[in-house]
C-alpha cells in the first residue's frame, strides 16, 4: 500500500519507512545515537528530497529518543544533571558551529571541510572505541582488569584539578561543571558543522572523557538528543517548511518500538560488547562515506541541500 507524502511530494510503500524506523530505533535504544547519520541517506535513497529527509528525520528522532529516554529512565540509566549541562554546552556550541559554517561557506570550502571532518571523526571514534573495547575484553579475560579504561592519567589529574567540582551520582563520577560544559560545546560545534545530532560523538566523550558507565551513557545521550531534535524540528518546520509529518509518523511508528526493543537487548549485552557493536557500525558508515567520496559519481549534478547526515 502506497501513501502520498504532502511535503516530500513523494509516494512510498507504507512498510518501508516503518521498517527503516524500526531498524534505526533499535540502534537508538541500543547505543544512544539518534541514527540521523544512517536514516537521512536512506530516506534520500528512497526519493525523499534531501532537505525534507534531514528535517523529517529530526522529527522522528524526537519520538524515538522520547521512547528510548523513557525506557532508560525506568532502568535508572539517565543522568539528568549531566545531561542538562551537556545540553547547555551543546546549544552554545551549536550556535558557534552555525557561525563557523557561514565563515567556511564564505571561504568557499565548506563542503570539503565538513566531509573531511565527518570522515576523520567517524574513523577516529570508531577505531578508538573498537580497539579500546577489544583490549578491555582481553584484560578481563586475563583477570587483570578493572572496568574503567586506564589511559591518560595526566588528563584525569587535569580534570580533577579544575574548579566547581560536583558529584554526578547517577554516573558515579565527580567532575568540574566546566568539563561537561566544555565537551558539550565541543560536540555541539562539530554536530552543527557536520549537520548531525551528535549522538555518535557524545557517546565516546561520555565514555572516555567523563568516565561514565556505558548504560548510563546511552540513556543520558538519548535525553540530550531529544532536546536537540525538538529544537531542530521546530526550526526546520518554521523556517524551511521541510518537515513531512506523515513521513515522520510512519518512521516513528517503527522507531519508538525499535527503541524499546533496543533498550531490552542492550540490557542483555555488556558495556564493552555494546561499544564494539557501535564501533563496527561507525566504521561501516566511515567506509561507505570514503567509498562515496572516492568513486566517480554517475551524475555530476545533484539537488542542493542534500548531504545532511
Amino acid at each position: 500500500m502506497y501513501i502520498y507524502l504532502p511535503v516530500a511530494h513523494t509516494s512510498i510503500n507504507i512498510l518501508i519507512p516503518i521498517a527503516l524506523g524500526l531498524t534505526v530505533g533499535l540502534m537508538s535504544g541500543l547505543f544512544g545515537v539518534g541514527g540521523g547519520f544512517l536514516m537521512t541517506p536512506l530516506l534520500i535513497m528512497l526519493g525523499i528530497p534531501p532537505t525534507v529527509a534531514a528535517a523529517t528525520d529530526s522529527n522522528q528522532i524526537v519520538a524515538a529518543s522520547t521512547s528510548g529516554t523513557f525506557a532508560h529512565w525506568r532502568l535508572g540509566n539517565v543522568d539528568f544533571k549531566m545531561g542538562l549541562i551537556l545540553l547547555a554546552g551543546g546549544f552554545g556550541g551549536g550556535l558557534g558551529g552555525v557561525q563557523l559554517i557561514k565563515i567556511l561557506k564564505a571561504m568557499g570550502n565548506a563542503d570539503f571541510v565538513i566531509k573531511l571532518t565527518y570522515v576523520l571523526m567517524l574513523g577516529i571514534v570508531g577505531s578508538y572505541m573498537l580497539a579500546e573495547s577489544l583490549a578491555a575484553i582481553k584484560r578481563k579475560r586475563n583477570k587483570a582488569a578493572d572496568h574503567a579504561p586506564k589511559t591518560d592519567s595526566k588528563m584525569a589529574r587535569l580534570l580533577a584539578s579544575m574548579p566547581f567540582q560536583t558529584e554526578f551520582k547517577k554516573s558515579g563520577v565527580t567532575h568540574s561543571v566546566l568539563v561537561p560544559l566544555f565537551f558539550g560545546t565541543f560536540v555541539g560545534i562539530l554536530a552543527a558543522v557536520m549537520g548531525v545530532g551528535g549522538g555518535f560523538l557524545l557517546v565516546p566523550v561520555m565514555v572516555y572523557m567523563l568516565r561514565m558507565p556505558m548504560h548510563v551513557v546511552v540513556g543520558t545521550s538519548l535525553f540530550q538528543i531529544l532536546f536537540n531534535c525538538v529544537e531542530v524540528t521546530f526550526l526546520q518546520a518554521y523556517t524551511n517548511h521541510t518537515v513531512d509529518f506523515l513521513l515522520a509518523l510512519l518512521l516513528l511508528a517503527g522507531s519508538t518500538l525499535g527503541a524499546q526493543v533496543g533498550t531490552i537487548f542492550g540490557r542483555k549485552l555488556k558495556g564493552d560488547q555494546l561499544k564494539i557493536l557501535l564501533a563496527i557500525l561507525v566504521l561501516a558508515v566511515t567506509v561507505k562515506m570514503v567509498t562515496d567520496l572516492t568513486l566517480t559519481p554517475d551524475l555530476l549534478l545533484g539537488p542542493a541541500g542534500g548531504d545532511g547526515g
Partner: peptide, 9 residues
C-alpha cells in the same frame, strides 16, 4: 512525536 514516544514507552 513526544506523545507517541511516551505512549509506546
Amino acid at each position: 512525536s513526544l506523545t507517541a514516544g511516551f505512549g509506546v514507552g
